[in-house]
Amino acid sequence: MTTTLEAASGYKPSRTLPLWAEVRRQASRRRTQLALGFMVLLPLIVLAAFEFGGGGRDDNDGNGGGAFSSMADLATSGGLNFALFGLAVSAGFLLVVVVALFFGDTVASEASWGSLRYLLAIPVPRARLLGVKLTVAAGYSLLALLLLVGTSLLVGTLRYGWSPMGSTIAAEIPPGEGLLRLLGICAYLATTLLVVAGLAFLLSVLTDAALGAVGGAVLLWILSSILDQIDALGGIRNGLPTHYTDAWMGLLSTPVQTEDLAKGAISAIVYATLFWGFAFYRFTRKDVTS
């Protein structure tokens, strides 16, 4: 045993906390399993509601209201529309909570269990720890999104068939292109959710209370959504992280309306970079007291 070794045999900073190890750490957690399971379950619940609810078709003529009701009316017209409906009902809140859960819980829960200090004492370099945690959280969030869309698409297509993506106001979109649009919507939603991801991750680094990080991110997201409803705020609303969350509807238009998508992506990426940047800055310097 040579004593001048800089590290124990086999230790390499870049090999600590392998991605796969972190994936397994999270996979064994009940909340991960529940969150992912619910993504599969939700389309089935929606399908069951459409099948057995019955009442949904009656008020078609009555209100003929907003974009949402038209989406609900069309949801049973084909697998693509069913998946679109699933996305539309989840985009506002469910996906936000799930993403906040994956990103907000990841560091804070280790801190609250006390296992964070042992990871740092291995030592897993702090930046690597955050990088791995971030990557795995992003992977799980993406998996959740894809599970939701994939399951809806699958059960919707099995039940309602493979037909063009319809809309009450825009022209029908052929199935092949419809699928591309659906993927585009997923990609845009994933991009806007970067804001939640950034915020939750930052809070996760700042606090030891996992629920505080998740709840805080969702809370701020809701707050931003409320502020966005207030017209009196004028131009300041364009800077709110939730201002462009509905821009994915531009992908349902013919031709696609991409201006807001670009703006939304810029907003989300800038916010996420700021949040993550601050999270890294803070975590690599702070005293871990938990």
């Binding site: 974009a67 809309s167 106001i169 825009a170 022209a171 509905d246 821009a247 509807m249 531009g250 349902l252 238009s253 013919t254 031709p255 309306q257 807001d260």
Partner: peptide, 12 residues
Amino acid sequence: VAGFSALDRGLV
């Protein structure tokens, strides 16, 4: 007219 916008339900 190029189509319809689902955003503001208006024309594009």
